[in-house]
Design a protein around this nucleic acid. Sequence first.
DNA 1: TCTTTTTCGGACCATTTAATCAAGAAATGA
DNA 2: TCATTTCTTGATTAAATGGTCCGAAAAAGA
Lengths: 195, 195
Amino acid sequence: MGRNKEFDTTVVLRKAMEVFGHYGYEGTSLQILLDGLGIARQSLYDTYGTKKDLFISAVKHYTNEKSTVVLTRLDRPGSVKAAITDIFREIAAALKDEARRKECFIMHSAIDQVPHVPEIAAFFEKDASRLEEAFYQALVRAYEQGELSDRHGDLRALARYLNHSRYSLTQAAKLTPEPKVLDDIVKVTLSALDS
Amino acid sequence: MGRNKEFDTTVVLRKAMEVFGHYGYEGTSLQILLDGLGIARQSLYDTYGTKKDLFISAVKHYTNEKSTVVLTRLDRPGSVKAAITDIFREIAAALKDEARRKECFIMHSAIDQVPHVPEIAAFFEKDASRLEEAFYQALVRAYEQGELSDRHGDLRALARYLNHSRYSLTQAAKLTPEPKVLDDIVKVTLSALDS
DNA sequence: TCTTTTTCGGACCATTTAATCAAGAAATGA
DNA sequence: TCATTTCTTGATTAAATGGTCCGAAAAAGA
């Protein structure tokens, strides 16, 4: 019994990504936050806890969502190169989409807080190592399948590079509104896999 | 006549880079800032103006310093590949040095402010296009010198990629304290120039 | 000595901050 | 009907915010 929630908590979480992504964690005042979420102040505290709690929830939700997509693609049977290409094309597409683009920028705000919020630091560390390992395993499989030559040598380094490149694309997007630049970066990034 | 300044304004500017780099622009309270700079409040306002003025000065000073190094190397006669390799090795070295590393993180704080401080947005836009052009001209020269094959094709894309990679290394450094990871990323990044 | 400049520190300002408490209205299902 | 939950709003709190003003001490050169 009791009254139902009038807002979808994950929809509001996405809005939080946008707001925090635009203003940064410290740059987002409670007023700005509430205006962006479209809910009343008390609803925020009742549903998510403090401003920091909401921020952490938004960061985790965003990261998990993105990581899941990557992990799924990497586990997909068949060409590993094709899977990795898809992953990067998908990121570029998200960053070129007016609506989805805004959510991505919470990553930047989150990285700001790494030195100050232990929970976020620990979360990112775990996520990064999980993804690095997934990339590595996929690359090993690619090698076994004959998709990579000995030229690529250090697959561990290649895995780290790919995971880092994935993260860094949002930074590039924040610095330039030009879609072509993003495409250029992705293209050259993927050329690291060429034979 | 009159009393001399007791502090070196550029030394204090470097300290400002560290403080802003660590806490972010909004995350840096005036108190934190003054403690970090080691000067009195009034001295700050007399010398640099407001907190925002100081931030902008620090960002510009840092960026100009780094860009100058890059432009100088790219103009150096001889192997372009060697020059670019040097540029990235130098960045990695800075990010691995306990002291210099801290200053670099002001870049991250600066990018946060791009959507909110027009002066910073304009400054970065100019700086980026200048460097992209320098990379491009250098790559053209490299091609003419026989350092690059037709495989590399789109030199404009390659230039954008290199400039972006340069920026993004600080992000990688912020996410991991592991020097080896940085080296791995640089190694693979530079492999884009391999024949 | 005298004037100028800088340093330093405290006092002070209005504003904003995140967060809590309270209370009534609206909705929900037993 | 009744208990429960959420929504909305306003009041309030205590602390922190960036910035200004003032005055005295300390240099430095004329």
